[in-house]
Write a protein that binds this DNA or RNA. Structure first.
Lengths: 138, 138
DNA sequence: TATTGTTATACTCTATAACTATA
DNA sequence: TATAGTTATAGAGTATAACAATA
């Protein structure tokens, strides 16, 4: 049976599954998915950001983001308070527990990236990162 | 707001969305999704193949494939008959209508690939295909 | 009038267990 | 006993409409 080697979309999803399996292996003990990690990382780098900022950066729809942010609030990793300049907005920041949790997340992320470089080869990994960055930005 | 440029998985999904939007633009008039196109292409290249062969090649779970194959049978594009050598198996082949339909699909696919090369640049497209092939195969 | 966040909802993809009929 | 196909179902991820509070 011949394969679908000519299909870019198919290849992308195959590699994405490889990445996701590695991510899950390194983060499942922390009960963190790629989306939750991305949200926490962005809040860490952008304290008091709004949910609209997050949905733009992650290209997620607001209703889906609301649910994920709710999970992180329920787990005590982030807190929301009304932005004094715009009372419609939730200003988000890490809690103390969330800040400490980031250390474990960053360790897990380093191990995940190391595994990806090992699986793909560092040269392939770097080439992919360089060539994916431009189209993903546009 | 900083972005998640360092996350391979995020970049892969952004590009995958770009590919899927282009695919949909070229195939929506034919009411064909990437998975349906892949199934038809594989049956065309491998007449009388079994559903197990397809599920392996597409890395799809059998129950999900059954539903997609059913759609193509209902639309009269493929036909299933019991394999005389193994009556458990469905031998799949294109119908006459399906064979003619492949011409339209291949035209749409050519246009889709041309658009992707235009969007990404032919050099980036070729580099991605070359570097995605190895990990996706493993 | 437009925007932030929210609720409810629906559609697709992916995943697993259990069944049937054949081998 | 193992395999091919099927049924039912559950879980993610993604999508849109409509609403309340605020700008």
């Amino acid at each position: 049976m011949s394969s679908i080697t000519s299909a870019l979309g198919f290849q992308l999803r195959m590699l994405d599954q490889l990445v996701q399996r590695s991510f899950q292996a390194h983060f499942q003990a922390l009960e963190i998915t790629p989306t939750l990690y991305a949200i926490l990382t962005l809040i860490d780098a952008n304290p008091l950001c709004r949910q609209t900022d997050l949905s733009n950066a992650l290209k997620m729809h607001q209703p889906n983001l609301v649910e994920r942010v709710g999970v992180l609030i329920d787990r005590g990793l982030i807190a929301a308070r009304a932005d004094p300049n715009d009372r419609r907005a939730n200003a988000l920041q890490l809690t103390f527990a969330g800040t400490h949790f980031m250390d474990k997340l960053n360790e897990a992320h380093d191990a995940h990236i190391a595994e990806m470089k090992s699986l793909l080869g560092a040269d392939v990994y770097d080439t992919l990162m360089a060539n994916l960055a431009a189209p993903a930005a546009g």
